[in-house]
Design a binder for these strands. Structure first.
Length: 342
DNA sequence: AAACAGGTGCTAA
DNA sequence: TTAGCACCTGTT
């Protein structure tokens, strides 16, 4: 199984503990009505899972809705080097995965990869209880977090590959989500390798370096092209060691990431949260700044720095989860007209 | 048509 | 440390 170094350490104890149970819960089976060129597996999900919120909340940019062979809605994307389609069957509480078995390593390895990618080990119930309590510290906050959680119950922070995450968030600056997705997709089809189901892997740093400035620019990423090239160069010459980052204190890892051009505090925090699963970081963008000001900081103007400090102070070890639920709430649920200034 | 978009680099107080 | 401005380019 392809586990990024560092995930293994962080999850070692859990995996050792749960491997027995997970084995029992994975069914290697043909899913009915699926052409025989596909293989399928089902994974028992412990606790909540909301695939729509998880994959459409803007933390990952490569998943898209497709109509599956069973006429249900599936999400299609890539896990490591394997193109997959996923669907959550609520009645059995199992995650259904389709893939091309000529591509994937083994059923078992893919099962682990799915389990890891979707962070099925995160205990959402505990996290929700913690956040609800943190939310209620000041009366003014009311039940914001409870509301935000209620509207996206089962949203999980993914474990994306750090490199893909780094490039994706460098691309994300000053762009909206559809535009980001388009650029990432073009990177993959232009420089990645076939992953099955018509998908392509995310290109390695070597591929970006080989493509050069002009090659990268062809994906319409504009002024970010040299930033991405800088990231590839620093990763390849070991100025930034993406594996070692997982063993560093958060503050140090953050500084390391920010030595890359195009990586500021926001992008660095996103990489730490979505690429390294550091659940205590609190990335601040315009929506989060707005939310923190409105819900928790008396409506005053806030700087990204002060919003970040307040988020970390208030939500502690699960600030990252708080951030993602707040972001989803601010963008999709909370009445847009109600925002003070815009 | 013109402003806007998950920010960041650069420069100057 | 912090404020102000430009920035590729597709979307709204």
């Amino acid at each position: 199984m392809r586990l990024e170094a560092g995930y293994i350490d962080r999850l070692a104890s859990y995996i050792a503990l749960e491997s027995e149970r997970l084995k029992l819960d994975v069914e290697y089976s043909e899913i009915c009505d699926v052409p025989e060129t596909f293989a399928g597996l089902k994974i028992k999900v412990p606790g909540f899972l909301d695939l729509k919120s998880t994959l459409e909340c803007g933390q990952a940019f490569r998943w898209r809705k497709v109509c599956g062979p069973d006429a249900c809605i599936w999400y299609k994307g890539v896990l490591g080097s394997t193109g997959v389609m996923v669907r959550f069957d609520t009645s059995s509480s199992k995650l259904l995965v389709l893939y091309d078995d000529k591509i994937a390593e083994t059923h078992h390895a893919l099962a682990w990869e799915v389990f890891n990618y979707f962070s099925l080990d995160d205990d959402l119930k505990t996290i929700y209880q913690f956040l609800a309590k943190a939310d209620a510290v000041h009366a003014r906050a009311g039940a914001v977090m409870q509301e935000a959680i209620r509207h996206a119950c089962g949203l999980r922070i993914l474990r994306q590959g750090p490199w893909e995450c780094l490039v994706s968030y460098i691309v994300s600056t000053n762009k909206n989500i559809p535009a980001i997705s388009k650029i990432i997709q073009h990177f993959c089809s232009a420089m990645g390798s076939p992953a099955g189901l018509g998908e392509y892997t995310f290109p390695s740093p070597e591929r970006f370096l080989a493509a050069g400035l002009d090659g990268i620019r062809r994906s319409k990423c504009g002024y970010r092209a040299p930033y991405i090239l800088d990231a590839a160069a620093k990763v390849l010459n070991n100025e930034v060691n993406l594996d070692e980052l997982s063993n560093m204190p958060t503050k140090e890892a953050r500084q390391q990431l920010q030595t890359i051009k195009g990586v500021g505090p926001k992008v660095a925090d996103c990489v730490l949260l979505f690429g390294y699963h550091r659940l205590d970081v609190f990335p601040v963008d315009v929506w989060i700044a707005r939310s923190m000001s409105h819900f928790y900081m008396g409506g005053n103007n806030v700087t990204p720095k002060s919003a970040r400090e307040e988020g970390r102070r208030r939500f502690g070890p699960f600030a990252g989860y708080a951030q993602q639920y707040l972001f989803n709430y601010a963008r999709n649920v909370f009445d847009k007209e109600a925002w003070p200034e815009r």
